[in-house]
Amino acid sequence: MISRRSLIAGSAAFGLAGCASHASVYTGPDVTRIQVLKERREMQLLNNRTLLKSYKIDLGFSPAGHKTQEGDGRTPEGGYRIDRRNPNSRFHLSLGISYPDANDLAYAQAKGIDPGGDIFIHGTPQRWMGTPDWTWGCIAVTNEEMDEVYAMVNTGTLIYIYA
């Protein structure tokens, strides 16, 4: 007969095992800035001016230009911050980008449009076909790379997205 204590301990271990695939520990220098070079399809993680890691990326399905409205398929350009972490993303793991900022909101209001939002750095869906520039304006890396990025980048980190 299984004791209640064994059942609880086994359930806890099983629950933690489900999280293990996303568990990654980073003990290196702090990531102080992220740079995204849209034209080169590259994301760089930096500690001050020292390059720590570089990744090939996919962008929004219409990558040229700055995001101005919901559904335009563009990835924003400019300076933002990582403002949230989502360990339960439908795209593996994700880090939120603080788009829209005050300037984006003012522009959208003046034009009478919705600026959109929910822009993230994230992994790929389970049934991803490998098509380039497939997101709705987000920045995507492989799931294995996202494990690394998620461990390295803290909330509040600056992100600069360049054309």
Rank of each mutant, 00 (worst) to 15 (best):
I2F: 15
R4V: 13
A13T: 09
A17T: 12
G18K: 09
G18M: 13
G18T: 07
S21W: 15
V31D: 09
R33A: 11
R33L: 15
E39H: 10
E42A: 12
E42I: 05
M43V: 10
L46W: 13
Y55M: 08
Y55P: 08
Y55E: 09
I57V: 14
L59M: 04
G60I: 02
G65D: 04
H66I: 03
H66Y: 00
K67C: 08
K67R: 12
Q69Y: 06
D72I: 04
G73Q: 10
G73P: 01
R74M: 03
E77L: 05
E77A: 02
G78L: 07
G79I: 13
Y80Q: 03
D83F: 03
R84W: 08
P87F: 04
P87N: 01
S89E: 12
R90E: 15
L93F: 07
L95D: 10
L95G: 11
G96F: 01
Y99R: 04
P100G: 00
D101P: 00
N103L: 02
Y107R: 10
Q109A: 09
A110W: 06
K111E: 08
G117D: 10
F120K: 07
H122P: 09
H122W: 02
G123R: 11
W128K: 08
G130T: 08
T131V: 10
P132A: 01
P132F: 03
T135I: 00
T135Y: 08
G137M: 12
I139T: 03
V141H: 13
V141K: 10
T142L: 04
N143Q: 12
N143H: 11
M146I: 04
A151N: 07
M152F: 07
M152L: 11
N154G: 12
N154Q: 14
T155F: 00
I161V: 06
Y162T: 11
Y162C: 06
